[in-house]
Design a protein around this nucleic acid. Structure first.
Lengths: 137, 137
DNA sequence: TAATAGTCTATTGTTTAAGTAGACTTAAAT
DNA sequence: ATTTAAGTCTACTTAAACAATAGACTATTA
């Protein structure tokens, strides 16, 4: 299961994807529409900005907006930036790999099963983009 | 990512699968071999017993053992019993479903993407069994 | 009846999530 | 220039979930 933080990030990105090209969107608007605690959302959006997925404008008429068209960012990228691992186990994670202390990965049955699972998941998440998060598509 | 508890459960089940038919296996042996905190493992095994995946014997020569042949239990069953959701979001979970407060699931893009991901994951985890957790298979 | 090994209750520590408060910065509108 | 809007940054607090530990209790075998 994805963390709340990641879930919120995906919802916010979907909201911004739907409004792409319409100028900055208020944090408060996203928080209200997607039912996200506003202070928590602040930190999430800031993190996404620092990772060059979003940009922002201060002051009147300010807010957040996607730096690139929705199709340019995959769900796999988005999840990894804020939420961390996509794989079910550390020992089969690509970006958050940790070695098992108790097994030889070359012959470990659990490792093998989870690697296959991860590949199936990634195949989907690396193809889908923020554009797919827009409702009714 | 699966919780530590679920990871430990899968490792223990894999160990017991490899020893299926050889009589009871000590908690302490599993803990030692799979590097699992023994007290934590105790509670996990007990839970698996209460869910009728394992049985146990007390006293000298006692220990835990699989109630059924390894092939009879799928990884999806095992994960659900101890670890909970397999899906990435509550709103696409089969066994731990929770409704979204902020979206109409029929048209929600995020819901759709995560449902497709879940189906791909389940297709694998419902086919693989504890037998596949035995090393070198 | 002594030793073995699982069972049960209770507690502690750590991490994540969430909420709160307030000061600061930038930009637009007046 | 001043006011207002809105994001940025720092700090603290609380609550819940997750992980780990301690010790007493029960059942079984020798």
């Amino acid at each position: 299961m994805l963390s709340k933080k990641t879930q919120y990030a995906l919802k916010a990105l979907g909201y911004l994807a739907a409004k792409y090209g319409e100028g900055p969107v208020l944090i408060s608007e996203i928080a209200l529409q997607k039912k996200i605690p506003i202070k928590f959302l602040e930190t999430i959006l800031l993190e996404l900005k620092q990772n060059n997925i979003l940009d922002s404008k201060k002051g009147t008429g300010g807010g957040y907006y996607l730096l690139q068209p929705p199709k340019k960012t995959t769900l796999a990228q988005a999840i990894r930036l804020v939420g961390g691992p996509i794989a079910l186990l550390p020992c089969v994670s690509i970006n958050f790999y940790e070695k098992c202390e108790d097994c030889d990965e070359a012959i470990c049955g659990l490792n093998k099963a989870m690697r296959i699972t991860r590949d199936a998941t990634l195949k989907i998440l690396e193809k889908k983009t923020l554009a797919e998060l827009i409702d009714g598509r």
